[in-house]
Computed example of a mutant assay.
Amino acid sequence: MSGCLARRSLLAGLMVTLATRAFGHDHNAPPVSPRPRDPLATQFGGPFSLTDHSGKRVTEADFRGRFMLIYFGFTTCAETCPIDLPIIAQALDALGPLAAKIAPMFISVDPVNDTPAVMAAYVANFHPRLIGLSGSEAELAAVARAYKVHRRKLTQTHHGHGEYTIDHGSLTYLMGPDGRFLTLLPHNSGAERMAGVLRKYIS
């Protein structure tokens, strides 16, 4: 099995468990609550050093004390990002004052096109608190590995020379104020569901 397929298989299995926890499909399971000793806490996340959409260098340590809500994508994405980013924005608005405890992040998987200026214009379309993060190929590859995000550049020869898109993971990651992984939210979760899951962790 290739590395990409192996990661997808692992994530698929984890998503079944996490979706059951988050959305209550298993009526015999205990209520959802943060579990600092959850073994999944070691599966996702880690240090990163990136550039935010204002041009400032930031690391994961700059967000200590807040929950990090992290989504990976790119500014010319035509499929998943235009669905999930509005859901994140609507979920933040639904939380009201509780949303101040969350640092919502959009991490680029496209180091070629997604400069800070491009990211600034893009994230402004969705929510004023959304933080766009980009970096070099090495920096983005490192953070993608830490979060087990697959990304694959696909050349689009029928669109002209040099045109491409990127196949990428579409999960949303919730990290605790200590930087430890808490849960995953699947693609197209819905704003109401996402807000409900977030509220359980942050309230």
Rank of each mutant, 00 (worst) to 15 (best):
V16E: 12
F44N: 00
M15K: 09
R35Q: 12
R193C: 05
N113L: 15
E79K: 12
H187M: 09
S203T: 07
Y147N: 02
F23L: 15
T80R: 08
A100P: 03
G196M: 01
M105V: 11
A19L: 08
L50Q: 05
R152C: 14
T59C: 06
M105T: 08
L171E: 13
C77Q: 09
E79A: 15
F48G: 03
A41Q: 03
P104L: 07
D178G: 01
R64Q: 11
M105S: 10
G96D: 00
P30N: 06
H161L: 15
R66S: 13
I107V: 15
M105R: 06
L92D: 00
T115L: 14
S49T: 13
C4V: 15
H159E: 15
A89P: 07
S108Q: 06
C77A: 12
A142H: 04
V149R: 05
M194H: 04
Y122Q: 04
T76G: 08
C4E: 15
T51G: 07
H161T: 14
T157F: 13
T165P: 06
D110V: 05
L198N: 00
A117R: 09
L5W: 05
H27K: 13
G46I: 08
R37E: 14
T76M: 15
F74S: 03
A78I: 11
R7I: 14
T42Q: 12
P116W: 11
G73S: 10
G55Q: 04
A91S: 10
S2W: 05
A146D: 10
L40G: 02
I70K: 00
E192M: 06
M1H: 09
C81G: 12
S49F: 08
A22N: 15
L40M: 13
T75M: 07
G135A: 09
Y147G: 02
R57F: 07
A117M: 10
H187A: 13
V16N: 02
I102E: 00
C81A: 13
S33Q: 13
D38K: 02
R180P: 07
A78N: 09
V112N: 03
L130P: 02
A78M: 14
A89H: 01
G160W: 03
D178R: 02
L185N: 00
S33P: 02
G132Q: 06
D38I: 06
A61H: 05
L182K: 00
F63L: 05
G176S: 13
L133G: 02
G13I: 09
V143D: 01
D93M: 02
D110H: 04
D93P: 01
H187W: 12
T172M: 09
F23C: 09
M119I: 11
R151H: 14
G3E: 14
L133K: 03
P34N: 09
G179K: 04
S134D: 04
M175S: 07
V143Y: 03
G45F: 07
D93T: 12
G190W: 00
A94F: 01
F181M: 07
T76H: 15
L69F: 04
L174I: 07
P31W: 01
P111W: 03
